[in-house]
Every structure is written in C-alpha cells, then in structure tokens.
C-alpha cells in the first residue's frame, strides 16, 4: 500500500492528466503547483483570468529582470509572459471560460459533493467577508473542472460529502477530485474511486460514509 500523497505528488498527478496542448487555468493557492509538473513540450497554455494567455513562471526579480507590477497573475503575484502570450481585457477573459474555450481548470475547495457540486468561495460564517473572484465563472465555464484538496479537514471532517453544506460555487461542475488519500471521479452518476494512497477502499467508504461506486 502506497503512502498518502504530498501536495507536490497531487500536483504531479493532475499535471499528468492534463492533455497536451490544453488551455488551462490554475486557481489561486495549491493549484498553481501544477505548473511546475507540466512536462516540457506539453504545449499546455496557461490562462490567468486577470487577462493573459501564455503565462510563464513567477517572476524572480533582480537587477536584470525587475518585478513588473503591470504583469501579475490572478493571485496578484508578479509573473512572466512566454513567447506567444497574449493580453486581453476582463470581458474577453471570462468569455473564454463561459464560451467553452478553456479545456481545464484546477481549483481548491472547501467541499465537493458526490454529484460534483463545488463549494470553495465562502465559509458562510457570519463574520466572514465573502469574496468570490472568478471562482463561479471558472466552475461553470471550463470544459473540465479538477479539484485539488485534502480529503479531510484538519478536524477530520470529510470534504467529499453527499451534499455541500457550505455556500455553493457551482452545481455539478467538478469532474475529478485529486486528494492526498485518493483520486475520484464525481458527477451525475455519483462518485467513483479511481485510486487510493495510504488507505483502502473499505477505510475510505467508512470514513466518508458514501458509496464509492
């Protein structure tokens, strides 16, 4: 039995499942790790919703290559542009999602339901200040939505759930769920366990309390 996956191993697994030549948006936070694992020559083009296709790695800064405040990613971190990059305004950027032109997006989540509902923008706590950004547009716009997260919260609560209890980001939008302990397919037909790491199907079924297909 293999061990639970690290964040880097989850990112590498996602990178392997992204078809060559795809147009891909990587969400803020852990999903950005996926970029480091895309093989050279994959032809994957990264989209950042603040207005660029062909995003390169984070900018390093330095005397020969100062950080450019006019060239940032969706997390407002200075990045680079690769040869063949393009810039565009916000209405175009989101039309690329809604219009079905983006092949894959990878997002983090608080909860994913067995039917592929996504909750990732708001904890719903009364004193929390809500912020949604592009999450709702990405969730319903990309042809495939992959989620990258730990399978259980710090307190042991499952994050793959029969029904989301956190405020929803999108209905039935997630197709695949990559976690430290397992990879799943989710959707209208329910959840299906594809691979487990450091645990078994029986253990997962018991801890999650859902039928794993």
């Amino acid at each position: 039995m293999s061990a639970a996956r690290t964040k880097e191993q989850i990112a590498a697994a996602i990178a392997r499942d992204i078809p060559a030549g795809s147009f891909v948006n990587l969400g803020i936070g852990q999903p950005t790790l996926v970029a480091d694992h895309l093989p050279p020559g994959s032809g994957v083009v990264l989209h950042t919703e603040n207005g660029m296709l062909g995003m390169g790695p984070a900018a390093r800064g330095g005397p020969d290559d100062p950080l450019d405040p006019d060239l940032t990613n969706a997390g407002k971190i200075p990045v680079t542009a690769l040869p063949g990059a393009s810039y565009f305004h916000q209405a175009d950027s989101f039309a690329m999602m809604r219009g079905g032109h983006l092949d894959v997006c990878v997002l983090g989540a608080f909860q994913v339901s067995v039917r592929g509902d996504l909750a990732n923008w708001h904890t719903g706590e009364p004193d929390a200040i809500p912020a949604v950004g592009g999450a709702m547009d990405l969730a319903i716009g990309a042809k495939q939505v992959f989620v990258m997260m730990t399978l259980f919260a710090n307190d042991g609560t499952p994050k793959l759930v029969p029904t989301c209890t956190y405020p929803l980001t999108g209905l039935g939008c997630v197709s695949r769920l990559y976690t430290d302990l397992a990879t799943f397919e989710v959707g209208a037909g329910g959840v299906r366990l594809l691979e487990a790491f450091g645990t078994t199907r029986d253990e997962l079924t018991e801890r999650l309390g859902v039928d794993l297909g």
Binding site: Q90, F94, R98, G133, D137, G141
Partner: peptide, 19 residues
C-alpha cells in the same frame, strides 16, 4: 468599514462584473 457596518457590499462574480 464592512465589519462596522459603514459600507455596503454587492458581491458580483468577476466575469459577471465585467460582462
């Protein structure tokens, strides 16, 4: 300002804001 109730917030998904 938000926690003190001194400013109103209409939260709009980013793509909807642009569109």
């Amino acid at each position: 300002l938000y926690r003190e109730g001194r400013i109103e917030l209409e939260l709009v998904p980013q793509g909807n804001l642009a569109e």
